[in-house]
Design a protein around this nucleic acid. Sequence first.
DNA 1: GTTAGCACTCAATATGGGAGAGTGCTAACA
DNA 2: TGTTAGCACTCTCCCATATTGAGTGCTAAC
Lengths: 348, 348
Amino acid sequence: MTLDARKKNVLLAIIQDYIATAEPVGSRTIARKYKLGVSPATIRNEMADLEEMGYIEQPHTSAGRVPSNRGYRYYVDHLMQREELSVEEEQLLLSGYLTKMQEVAQVLRRTGQLLSHITSYTGVILTTCYGQGKFKHIQLIHMSAGQAMVVVVTDTGAVHHRIIEIPESICPADLETISAVLNQKMHGKSIENIRLTLIKEIYFELAKQKHVIDLAMDVIRDSLSVETGEKIYLGGIFNILNQPEFNNIEKVKTLLSLLEHENEIANIMTDVFRNEGVTVRIGEEMVDDRMKEYSMVMGSYHMEGKPVGAIGLLGPTRMDYARAFAVVEYMTRNLSLVMERLLRWRGK
Amino acid sequence: MTLDARKKNVLLAIIQDYIATAEPVGSRTIARKYKLGVSPATIRNEMADLEEMGYIEQPHTSAGRVPSNRGYRYYVDHLMQREELSVEEEQLLLSGYLTKMQEVAQVLRRTGQLLSHITSYTGVILTTCYGQGKFKHIQLIHMSAGQAMVVVVTDTGAVHHRIIEIPESICPADLETISAVLNQKMHGKSIENIRLTLIKEIYFELAKQKHVIDLAMDVIRDSLSVETGEKIYLGGIFNILNQPEFNNIEKVKTLLSLLEHENEIANIMTDVFRNEGVTVRIGEEMVDDRMKEYSMVMGSYHMEGKPVGAIGLLGPTRMDYARAFAVVEYMTRNLSLVMERLLRWRGK
DNA sequence: GTTAGCACTCAATATGGGAGAGTGCTAACA
DNA sequence: TGTTAGCACTCTCCCATATTGAGTGCTAAC
């Protein structure tokens, strides 16, 4: 089902206009603003066709047309022309990183804010793929009789910690020993490696403290696995409220309740790792029914060529995809650089 | 300027009714619902007086009266009767902690959610007072040539980490040595102590690595100092939108933009440490002008008798102070217990 | 295939009364 | 002197009724 050139132009005009104005667009407007060389009546005919094909819809009989999610999809896949950011905008985005960053979390938070600030959508950052990360260091710290803290550092610069129960008989020195052995055995290994081959060796060496090791291994597994390794940063939740679609409170409420369930967002974002480049999810393409009025434009950022996380923009389906595309693309490159500089990878 | 008994009763009735209904309350309503034994006309006279004294206001001529912030203040200080939570509510709050908690952050996040869930206001948790915390453990971890990660653990269970630049000549073993010395010297000491007396000793012992120690000390100082030790957790931002005052988007926007500046909220909350028990801040008592339609009810939680953080409820000035009071009071006790159990303090 | 013309639809925007809640004032009452 | 009933007055809120205007679909002519 392919569209002839004029239909494409009409659809493009409708979508561009609707993105710009958020008002249903009528045949007159198109004839006037976008010179297609035909009269409103002709455009009306084309619009009737497009509606039948499901690319646009009518809120009510005497209103103009509005793109359907299917229409947006067609636009993104076939009609959208690439956009470049202006030099000033690139400057603005870069300058956000000027204040000295010392923590991965800080960089990511900042990135979320920048994304949101420049687009008036909500910036979403996902860190993940610790599954592909490597173990760097583990430390067991004695907190009190019967309690210890496990701290695990991965080579992506992530730090995970947790309090565990230990037999009261274990003293600080024991923990030091355990830490040392674990570090020595696991240094630079990936989690799969550890699980498959090393674990027996370690058990053997530390037979006495089986229980503690089990708990410590839990933390390691958690921190290296995708499951809890995921963390979401949201930036500028309230910027998106400037979008005209949030003129009624119910919408705001559903959005906020949506954003409170971070793991669902995380779920959607993992999609991104299946594609190269920038991915767009529109409306009900994102499972959850409450998302059907929202879209996400997302991309992954890399370290050493491997994707280690994703950034995205969450906006109404009416969002400016071309611009979001450009911003996300620019920011993924940018963020990859900043991250690599922060955790310079020479030694390993 | 003290009020006679009848004026007090009228003011109390107005405030209670307004808290319950969010509608301006008229003389008729009071005469009917709250049996003061006088006619509406008499109540009207009293209301005129109360208005002149600034305890209540009139949205427009033909509307009932609404409490002013001054009125709320008088209510909280002199009229409010203490309320107890029902057994079911206490149960509900307790059950929130049943799923196993392994991290301080997790407990605090949960607490925020619980606070919000049971009151439909926004729960705010502030952790602070690491200045009074003690140093537990430091670890320098070699990440790559020229870069190391510093991880500091305090006895309150907080973990701070940061990437620092180091001379390329320093190898993992050096960092290990430095870690060991630092740990040995500083174990169990407070930051003041470290700064004042130990630092020279440490420099002497590790003269070669002055630069690294400086950087590490920065992290320690930061993590133990109140400045960056503060962290805010917000719970149920969207629960508060159920309050009828948020019927218009502008209100929602200002609230959200307010909540994005966590440090300002933190500022307000430090007030709490000056008082015993539960503190109430109403409207413009909280500096920022945009806060004049909100109130906070807050209390501090303790570990070993010392306040280590604060919890609070943020709601409209019309909030149910008596109930908020009860919830906050109960939760501070609760949280103190949970925290102490999580980081059992026997050993030290 | 395109276009002008026209009748029709329907949301959004006034317009214009009530209805109702609440007030302040006055005068009468205990 | 304090309290109360009565009453005129003032607003907001709500509802029902035009009015407007943008936009459509259809038909017939070009």
